[in-house]
C-alpha cells in the first residue's frame, strides 16, 4: 500500500449527500475476482452515457479538465454509505484519488479507505463548501494541500483547517502498514485470551 504523508493536488467537488458505494462502483462493474481493473468502472453510471458503455458524459466532473487529474475529492455528508464493497476504495485508488474530504463517511467505507492508502478527512460541512467554492474559481491553481502528520488541510489563500484522525489510522496511512502483521505482534495476548475464553464460554467453540 502507498504511504500517505503530504499531498498537494487538484480537488474535484462532488457535493451530493449520501453518495453510496453502488454509485462509486456499480455491481455490474465488479466483473472479476480481483482488486484490480476497477478504476474504469468508477462512477460508471454517472461517468458514461449508457450502462456498460465507455462513452463519456461530458457533464460529469471527473470527465472535465483539469479535474481529470484530481487526486482529492470534496464530497457531501455520508459519502460511501451503503454496501461494504471494498471495490469502491479500490476503484477510487486505481483512478488516482488519494484523499476525500467530507463532513462524514459511511463507517465501513472509511475503514476501507484507510486500508487502501486513501485518506478520509472529516471537515465541517461549511468548510467543505468553502473549499469547493475556492477550487471552482480556478481548479488548476487553487490546489489543496494536505499534511497528514500535522493533520492540516491548507488552501492557496493560506487558510488552515485541522482534522481529526485516530492515531492508529494515521499511522497505518503514513507507514503503509500491513495490519495483519501489526496485529500478529500481539499473538501471545490473543492466544491467552482465547485459552481463557474457552473455559468461560465453551459453547462458542464449535
Amino acid at each position: 500500500m502507498d504511504k500517505f504523508t503530504t499531498l498537494t493536488a487538484i480537488a474535484a467537488p462532488l457535493l451530493r449527500i449520501n453518495i453510496d458505494t453502488d454509485a462509486i462502483i456499480p455491481s455490474r462493474e465488479m466483473k472479476r475476482v480481483s482488486k484490480e481493473g476497477l478504476g474504469e468502472g468508477l462512477f460508471a453510471a454517472w461517468r458514461y452515457t449508457e450502462p456498460g458503455s465507455r462513452n463519456e458524459n461530458p457533464d460529469f466532473i471527473l470527465n472535465q479538465e483539469p479535474y481529470r487529474q484530481a487526486q482529492i475529492l470534496l464530497a457531501g455528508t455520508n459519502f460511501g454509505c451503503g454496501s461494504s464493497r471494498e471495490h469502491a476504495a479500490w476503484a477510487l485508488a486505481e483512478w488516482g484519488i488519494r484523499a476525500i474530504i467530507a463532513p462524514s463517511f459511511g463507517t465501513i467505507f472509511y475503514a476501507n479507505c484507510v486500508r487502501n492508502g486513501i485518506l478520509p478527512a472529516v471537515l465541517p460541512e461549511g468548510r467543505v463548501q468553502a473549499l469547493a467554492a475556492l477550487v471552482a474559481e480556478d481548479p488548476k491553481n487553487n490546489q489543496i494541500n494536505i499534511d497528514l502528520e500535522k493533520k492540516i488541510i491548507t488552501t492557496p489563500d493560506q487558510l488552515t483547517n485541522t482534522f481529526d484522525i485516530a492515531p492508529s489510522d494515521q499511522e497505518m496511512l503514513m507507514e503503509g502498514l500491513d495490519t495483519i502483521a501489526v496485529t500478529m505482534k500481539r499473538d501471545d495476548e490473543i492466544l491467552a485470551f482465547q485459552a481463557q475464553d474457552r473455559l468461560k464460554r465453551p459453547w462458542i467453540y464449535l
Binding site: 461494504s84 475503514a111 486500508r115 490473543i190
Partner: peptide, 20 residues
C-alpha cells in the same frame, strides 16, 4: 457488523479486529 474484504482477511487470520 459489516466490514470490507481486507478486514475480513484480518479477522480470519488473527481472530481479531481493531475497532474504534
Amino acid at each position: 457488523w459489516g466490514i470490507g474484504s481486507t478486514e475480513c482477511e484480518h479477522a480470519m487470520a488473527t481472530k481479531t479486529l481493531a475497532v474504534k
